[in-house]
Structure formats: structure tokens, C-alpha cells
């Protein structure tokens, strides 16, 4: 055995997961397939996947819920990197692929059953793969964007599961909202200091008026893209260090 990265050990850790959670996985994806038979709206499917995914990710390190199981997990002869990569593979790649497979299976079965029962001739269309043709919130969504956003949410909840011993999903959501609120207050404070107003789009009682398409900083989109692609590895790295520091 080597301290350096070992694919064999990752394989062993993955097989450990599937052997231990075989029944739960089969039940969950079975139920998901049935849901996708009736649910065809990409927006609702996305919401379902994000919520189910975050619960799944929040359980990545559920071994730490109970000290003896946490001890057992930490003492498995594999590096922290391998343990984290296994968790990422499971809650991001595996979950998303399993979701796509069950989505396709559920949709195909559902539409064909509908056609058979109600004597219709509805064509089988997998809306999720029709790039940019549906709305999710304010943005046009394609599969890659959906996957990337999903990966970030999973990374946040994976970090939460290393950080919090119990009820990690709830505590992560709470932390997220507290942080968002603090950032919101900070933003208001900065606006007040810089512009003497709490808003940049005020028209009535504030000192400044800006057109809706006004860009305060040029190149902001590039910065946004960089932040977007740095966030994911950043969250993984923080999770790694948290895992190396974990004591039970």
C-alpha cells in the first residue's frame, strides 16, 4: 500500500458504500423512477434533484454521527484524499448519473404507459436534454449549468457533513442563511458608505439613480465566471482539511 493516491483503495471504498447501502439505494432510485414517470416539468425535476441531492450529500460523512462508526471510518487504511474523492464521486457524479438514468427510464416508461392507457400518441421528449429551452428561476438552464450548480450545492453539504456531527443538512442550511444575511448587511453598509444610500436602484428618496443595464465594474462577468469555477475546488479543499483535522 502507498500513501500516494490509489485507485484500488477508491474502488474498495466505493464497493464498501454500495454493499452497505445497497437496499437504500435501490429503494430510493426505484421511488425516483416512479416519480419521474409522472413528473415531466424540468423545473420541478430540478428542484427534486437538488433537494434529494443535498440530503444525500449531507450524509456523505454520516459515520461521524456516532463516535464508534466515525472511529471505524477514520481508521480505514486509506488517505483522507481518497475518502473525500469517494464521497465526491458518490454524491456528485454517481448521484447525477443515477438521476439522469432514472429520469430517462421514468419518462420513457411514463409517456409510453400514458399513450397505452389513454390511447394517445405523445412523442417521448426528454426536456432536460433540450439545451436552454426551459427556465429555472431567471436563467435559461442547460444540463452542464445544472450539473455545475448541483456540484456546488453538493460540495457545500459535503463540507457541512464533515463539519457538523448531527443534523448536518439543517445546520448547513442555517449556516448558509446566516452567512447570506451577514453578506446582505455588509452590502447595505458598503452602499451606505460609498453612495450615501441603501440602494443603487432607488428612484424616489435616494441620491443616485442608475439605469438598469448600468455596469458598475467592467469585466464583472469574467470575475463572476472565475468565482464560479473556483468555488467548487475551494469547497472541496476546505472539506479535505476539515477531514484531516477530524478527531473523534
Amino acid at each position: 500500500m502507498k500513501t500516494t493516491f490509489s485507485l484500488n483503495r477508491i474502488g474498495l471504498l466505493l464497493s464498501r458504500y454500495f454493499i452497505e447501502n445497497k437496499q437504500r439505494e435501490l429503494s430510493f432510485w426505484g421511488i425516483a423512477t416512479v416519480i419521474f414517470m409522472f413528473m415531466h416539468q424540468p423545473g420541478s425535476i430540478s428542484v427534486f434533484v437538488f433537494i434529494a441531492g443535498l440530503i444525500f450529500a449531507a450524509n456523505s460523512f454520516k459515520a461521524f454521527n456516532y463516535t464508534p462508526t466515525g472511529m471505524h471510518f477514520l481508521l480505514i487504511p486509506a488517505t483522507h484524499t481518497e475518502k473525500l474523492i469517494t464521497a465526491i464521486i458518490l454524491n456528485t457524479v454517481y448521484f447525477f448519473i443515477a438521476f439522469l438514468i432514472t429520469y430517462c427510464a421514468g419518462t420513457v416508461i411514463g409517456i409510453n404507459l400514458e399513450n397505452l392507457i389513454f390511447d394517445r400518441n405523445t412523442p417521448v421528449v426528454l426536456d432536460l436534454f433540450q439545451q436552454g429551452n426551459y427556465q429555472f428561476g431567471d436563467d435559461s438552464v442547460n444540463l452542464w449549468n445544472m450539473f455545475y450548480s448541483f456540484a456546488i450545492v453538493q460540495a457545500i453539504f459535503t463540507l457541512g457533513s464533515v463539519y457538523f456531527k448531527r443534523s448536518s443538512a439543517f445546520k448547513t442550511i442555517l449556516t448558509f442563511f446566516v452567512l447570506a444575511f451577514v453578506l446582505f448587511l455588509f452590502e447595505l453598509l458598503m452602499l451606505k458608505i460609498m453612495f450615501g444610500s441603501f440602494s443603487l436602484s432607488g428612484h424616489n428618496s435616494f441620491n443616485i439613480n442608475l439605469p438598469r443595464d448600468y455596469e458598475l465594474f467592467t469585466g464583472w462577468e469574467t470575475v463572476g465566471e472565475i468565482i464560479k469555477y473556483v468555488t467548487l475546488p475551494f469547497l472541496w479543499i476546505v472539506s479535505y482539511f476539515r477531514l484531516t483535522e477530524k478527531q473523534v
Binding site: 502507498k2 452497505e20 463516535t67 464508534p68 486509506a78 488517505t79
Partner: peptide, 28 residues
């Protein structure tokens, strides 16, 4: 917690871990 060290240590805690698998699968 290097694997080279962990593969040479076996720790039997007083309270045992909760594992939902058979003895055969545990071995596997």
C-alpha cells in the same frame, strides 16, 4: 493517519460501529 500505519493497526473500541452488512460482506 497514513494508510501504511492504519493497515498495521486494528482498534477494537468498547462500543462497536453500526454497520448494516453481513459478516461475509464485512470480510469482503
Amino acid at each position: 493517519r497514513f494508510p501504511e500505519m492504519l493497515q498495521e493497526i486494528y482498534f477494537l473500541p468498547e462500543e462497536l460501529p453500526l454497520l448494516t452488512m453481513s459478516i461475509q460482506n464485512y470480510e469482503n
